[in-house]
Simulated scan of single mutants.
Amino acid sequence: MSNPFEHLRDIRDLRVVDGGAPIDASPLVMERAHNVALMGEAPETPARPRDIEPVNAMHVLLMVVRGVYRHLAPEWRLTDTNADKELGAVIERAEMANPLLRLAWQHLGPEPAAAKELAGALESFRVRNALLVKPNAMVKLLESDIMLDTLWSRDPLVLYHPVLFAQCMTEPVDGQWQVANCDLISHRERAKQSLLWWLPQYGPLAAFVEQQFGLFVDEDTAQRYCYRFNEPAVLRVHSKVHKNSFATAKEAHERHSFEALRELEIDGCDYAPNADGTGLQKTGRKTKYVLVMVVRLHDDQQRGRILVRRYLPSGVFIDEPDHFQFHNRNWRLSDASGNYLLYYHICGDTSSYSAEAVREAPRSDPDSDVAAERRRVENVFLRYNPAGPN
């Protein structure tokens, strides 16, 4: 089966600069060049689209895929230039089955011809896969079967470790453990389970993630199972807040602000059996994650648009090109109402990052101060909760 978008320019084919001689660069240099393009480019919105909703949804979908690619190792995103030829062929087949993954590697820009070609390719993809692109169906679009099968099922994006330990309930916990058959769970189902659905009422996000792992009992099979964290390169979470989620604007900021959610430390219950197969020893190792992308889903307060923000692991806000319409400065994660997709990147050490550089969004007014920002948050909160803040 041929790829209908094979002719499009591919960032991974970058071999020359400004028409000059071919680049003789190391894989690391090439990877950095790819990442610059992935994070520095954005699609152009047609001047007079017949229907803005499909354009909005498909453009945000494209930006999410590019943001995820940014945080995958080369062996999980390259095709013909992959050092692992077998894995490269697997990824190429995934791109043939899901051309959006190939489209996400296209050079993007404001040129009318490029924008028109991209718009046609995205529409072809949507029709080909019978995808609904209503604003309130964005999660279904991102988590559609084709996305689960071709992107989210890749090993570094799966939440649960593929090796599962099992033990008969009649055995003591420190008794014999066996490796269970993970093939009973399809790749699609493992990918689907990797999106966590969290509400602030469940408690802190890091603790909620940790609750997904450890020892669980299945009465139907009379087995104990040990589920372990796979330490995915990208951890994805759905979050929803409404006017009754928090009592005050202060509580909203403490529990659901950019500052509160930017870093997570996850104890993934990384157990290992003893040499003789008995008992499970917990390593106690924690894994650090940083927020690198937020999608604000359909919201009447944002004219019904789906909006995206991306960040460097250092917390620096990435200011998207002016021609990309689906981002703005006028919302915060601490708003009293909102529906979000949060994307975290595994990050070994954040101690070298400058706290002064961390910011949720550029300030509209460079002269605004902390007091003005606090007043803005409280005014937004009052709009949804007239009884607060206290």
Rank of each mutant, 00 (worst) to 15 (best):
R329L: 11
A247N: 09
V377I: 13
P22Y: 03
A89T: 05
L297M: 15
P46L: 00
A247R: 12
V133W: 01
M169E: 12
V179S: 11
S364C: 05
V370R: 13
Y202R: 06
K286Q: 13
A37F: 01
V29K: 09
R9G: 15
V173E: 08
V64S: 05
R329M: 11
V163P: 00
Y311M: 01
F213N: 00
D145Y: 07
R77M: 11
S26H: 06
R329G: 08
I306R: 09
E143S: 05
K240W: 09
L333F: 00
S186R: 07
F213D: 00
V380L: 10
N136G: 06
I346R: 10
N230L: 00
R126Q: 11
C182F: 04
F258G: 05
Q302F: 07
D299N: 12
S334E: 07
P386S: 02
Y343D: 12
I306C: 08
S364V: 14
A361E: 00
S124G: 14
M138Q: 14
P74K: 04
L382F: 10
P321D: 10
N230K: 00
D13S: 13
C182S: 13
A357Q: 13
L184K: 11
W198Q: 06
P389V: 02
F258W: 14
L196P: 08
V139Y: 04
C168I: 03
A222Q: 13
G304K: 14
L215C: 12
F381Y: 15
G279D: 08
V294I: 10
H242I: 06
D267N: 15
H298F: 13
L297C: 15
V294K: 08
N56Y: 03
I318N: 09
V60P: 00
N181K: 05
D80N: 05
S245A: 02
E373T: 06
E117Y: 01
A119I: 09
Y202S: 06
A357Y: 07
N129A: 03
P386Y: 04
V17C: 07
D220T: 12
H161D: 14
F216H: 14
P156W: 00
M30F: 04
L307I: 12
D155N: 11
P99K: 06
L141S: 11
T79Y: 01
D365R: 14
A233H: 04
L151E: 01
L291H: 02
Q167E: 11
A137Q: 13
L38P: 01
Q167I: 09
V237S: 03
D367V: 07
Y353T: 06
A73L: 08
M169A: 15
E6S: 13
H256F: 00
E117F: 00
S368F: 02
H253A: 15
L196A: 10
A115I: 02
L118Q: 11
W177F: 11
P200W: 02
R262H: 09
I346M: 09
R15N: 15
R126I: 05
D299M: 07
Y225R: 10
L159K: 01
